[in-house]
Design a binder for these strands. Structure first.
Lengths: 260, 260
DNA sequence: CGATGACTTGACTGCTGTCAACGTGCGTGG
DNA sequence: CCACGCACGTTGACAGCAGTCAAGTCATCG
């Protein structure tokens, strides 16, 4: 098993990228942490070699030691009920933090698995806690990130609690589009790193339903889909289908037409 | 049979109870905050007069200034989608914190409404943030509470994402029973402060479905229901119905129910 | 090139929502 | 004290959305 080779694949330069230089630092730590602080944060962060697709970053029940930040790639977090069915809690893109739900119990309640080759930063929690005591900006930021996580989970509860299958998938695609856009990628086309089954397990739908909806959306001219590649053709109408007020990032500059 | 009415109008004495004497402090601030620290925390907390049933503690969109801790009574937090349907995010019992989802956006994403006469402690967030910088135990505790909230929301996502109506209501009742028990009340019988409609909006079910399930559970001998009063007759079987591993609190400490 | 896994499509079933009517308890006011 | 209205809850009939089962297609990889 020559997995050792992976260490060579990653260039030394990549490994030594500091938080300050990291292109994600504006996403990972949006505000409140200035350059000096970041240096200190940088010192405690452990950069690991990439995780191959399908590998677990951690499994449900593992002891909690660190928060992880996605640097490249993507992963899903999920719980497995005793029926064997997976509930996917989230798909995590570069710049997003994983493992915040483990602080309270000192153990991870969820499993985290790479959807593609993925690299993460490991942030030992005791160090982070200690450091945030000294850096007001960091503490503030930590609370904000956790608050946002709660808020995001609440929005997912709305989706799971009262949306139709059609609305769920539409909302999912709009949300994904927004997240890609915020990261500097195209909002109108992107590649899904997760399977139809994963999407179903995330949205509380059967994978067949997800598949059927993709073809229906395509037939309706809302998007084009080719395997994992998605191209949104009519974002506005997809927004309507999602049955939610979607803050459209493009529309912010233009005038926002709203219909209540 | 004695003090069944906790939600009786609080006396002036109650209003002046400090955090240290508050019977909830072990729930509100489980560990990591010692007596000296609590005194400081106490100084920043504002005790308001009780909220009548139906009144809002805050509404979605309100500016965020404070976290609230329920002292007596109960309230629900909910979002209203533009279809008018409410998604109830949680029912909050004494000792639980409300408003943690507002930190990130500086505004409350949800509305909070009293289900009965309810009194709360108001904790100005800027003060709390400042204080937690000085008290390691408090900071630790704050992160823990938020982490637990994320974890709880995730469990709700499992319920909404993949449970049947029957499993949802069973899980809801078991969870409520546990929470009452942890607060020193009977785990086997309690009064619901929320309506069937609220339960439906929480579990993603129509209120008719909730009503039907209550009568079905009663016919199956799982429980007895009389309006708002619930008596669990067969907790084990209800656990099975919920389709989840429920850690039963009775099993831990035998019969330590101290009310009635 | 065959095996494997991911995806698509179809047929059918059933759970749960919707609509509707009725019952019940409680507070209000006469 | 009773009558009434209203909110809440229960029950029934029916329909439709989405799950399940099953078969077939397509891409990728050894």
């Amino acid at each position: 098993m020559p997995t050792r080779k992976l260490e060579k694949v990653v260039s030394l330069h990549d490994i030594r990228v500091a938080c300050l230089e990291c292109s994600l630092n504006e996403i990972c730590l949006p505000v409140g942490v200035d350059a000096d602080d970041i240096e200190q944060l940088d010192a405690i962060i452990d950069r690991k070699r990439p995780l191959p697709r399908g590998d677990h970053l951690f499994r449900a029940g593992d002891a909690f030691k660190s928060i992880f930040a996605v640097r490249a790639g993507s992963l899903k977090t999920y719980a497995t009920s005793q029926s064997g069915q997976e509930q996917v809690m989230g798909f995590h893109l570069p710049g997003e933090l994983v493992g915040l739900d483990a602080i309270a119990r000192n153990a991870h309640p969820l499993s985290a698995r790479a959807l593609e080759t993925t690299s993460v930063c490991e942030i030992p929690f005791t160090d982070l806690e200690e450091l945030s005591m000294q850096l007001p900006g960091l503490q503030r930021e930590l609370l904000r990130v956790m608050s946002r996580e709660i808020h995001d989970d609440e929005q997912n509860m709305v989706i799971l609690g009262q949306k139709s299958a059609e609305e769920r998938l539409a909302a999912f695609l709009i949300g994904l589009s927004n997240r890609f856009h915020r990261r500097g990628f195209s909002a109108s086309q992107f590649n899904l790193s997760m399977s139809r089954g994963d999407i179903g397990d995330y949205l509380g739908l059967a994978l067949e339903t997800v598949s059927r909806l993709f073809t229906r959306f395509q037939n309706d001219g809302l998007l084009r889909v080719d395997r994992k590649h998605i191209e949104l053709l009519n974002r506005d109408r997809l927004c309507l289908f999602s049955g939610a007020r979607c803050h459209q990032h493009q529309a912010e500059t233009a005038k926002s037409s709203r219909s209540n």
